[in-house]
Amino acid sequence: MNKNDLRVLKTKQNIHLSLTNLLKKKPLTQIKITELCKQANINRVTFYFHYQEIGDVFKELFEEIMIDLRKSYNEPYRYKEYIDREKLDPKTVRIFHHVKKYEEFYKIILSKEVSTEYYYMLFDEIRSILIEDKHTAYLEEKDYLFSYMSNSIIGLIIEWYRRDFQESADKMNIHLVNILKLY
């Protein structure tokens, strides 16, 4: 079956949504395949056709969300090769729109009840985005700087999470741009 087949896409989307709903109630390690199948209203054969274990579903979901994060991070560069921090337009920043789009997922991975493994997965992904950014290639002491920058982005997301994502994504973009102008 083609992975771009609409039936496959809908099934996987349903499984991802079901896993997200279960993760609101319990850690990944406590979720059983039977439970996920019941939540997704699929049979075990369908599950095993696409995955070997629950962790594979989480990995696929995480990767899907991180692909969207990369696109969101790169959005300001879509029409400009170089961006001057002083002239950065908050309307071109898309990171917080991404977080809002996947708000339920971020609520799970930023929760105090889950393993710090999720934090480090997010940290590593953001850090790799920064490392691959050709606009930061000139920077020295990259290891520490990219770690600092990654935690800065996550720090803004955590503060927004603590406020239950009440501010709009546009307002968060303004916060980020204002902070960037300070440095």
Rank of each mutant, 00 (worst) to 15 (best):
I126T: 02
L36W: 01
L19E: 01
K101S: 10
L122S: 03
T34P: 01
K59S: 13
E125S: 13
T46P: 10
K112F: 12
K12L: 14
I42Q: 07
E103W: 12
T34G: 14
E113T: 08
L122Q: 05
L36E: 01
F96C: 01
H16P: 01
K101I: 05
E81K: 13
L28V: 05
K26F: 09
E53H: 14
V93R: 09
I42C: 06
E86N: 06
D68G: 07
I31V: 10
V93N: 06
Y82R: 15
I42Y: 08
L130H: 05
V114D: 04
Q30E: 13
K24P: 10
E104N: 12
H50T: 10
E104V: 07
T92Y: 08
I83F: 12
E86G: 08
I33M: 04
L19H: 02
K24M: 14
A137D: 14
K87D: 05
K112P: 09
M66E: 05
Q13T: 07
F105C: 03
S18W: 01
N74G: 00
M121F: 00
I108G: 05
K59I: 06
A40K: 00
Y118A: 03
K134S: 06
Y79E: 11
R85T: 07
F105Q: 05
I65C: 02
R44L: 09
F62S: 05
F49C: 09
L28K: 07
Y82W: 11
F49H: 12
D124W: 15
I54V: 10
E60F: 06
Q13S: 09
T116W: 05
S115V: 07
L36C: 04
K101G: 03
K71W: 01
H50Q: 06
I15Q: 04
L130A: 06
K87Y: 05
P76F: 02
Y77A: 01
E113C: 03
A137N: 09
D84R: 07
E86T: 04
S115I: 10
I65F: 03
T29N: 12
L28H: 06
E117C: 12
E103S: 10
P27I: 15
E132T: 13
S128H: 04
Q13L: 12
L23R: 10
Y48S: 04
E81M: 08
L122W: 06
L36H: 00
S72L: 13
Y48P: 03
L17Y: 14
K100V: 01
G55R: 10
F105H: 11
V99I: 14
H98V: 04
V93H: 06
L22D: 03
G55A: 12
T29V: 11
K134W: 01
K134N: 05
D124M: 12
K91R: 11
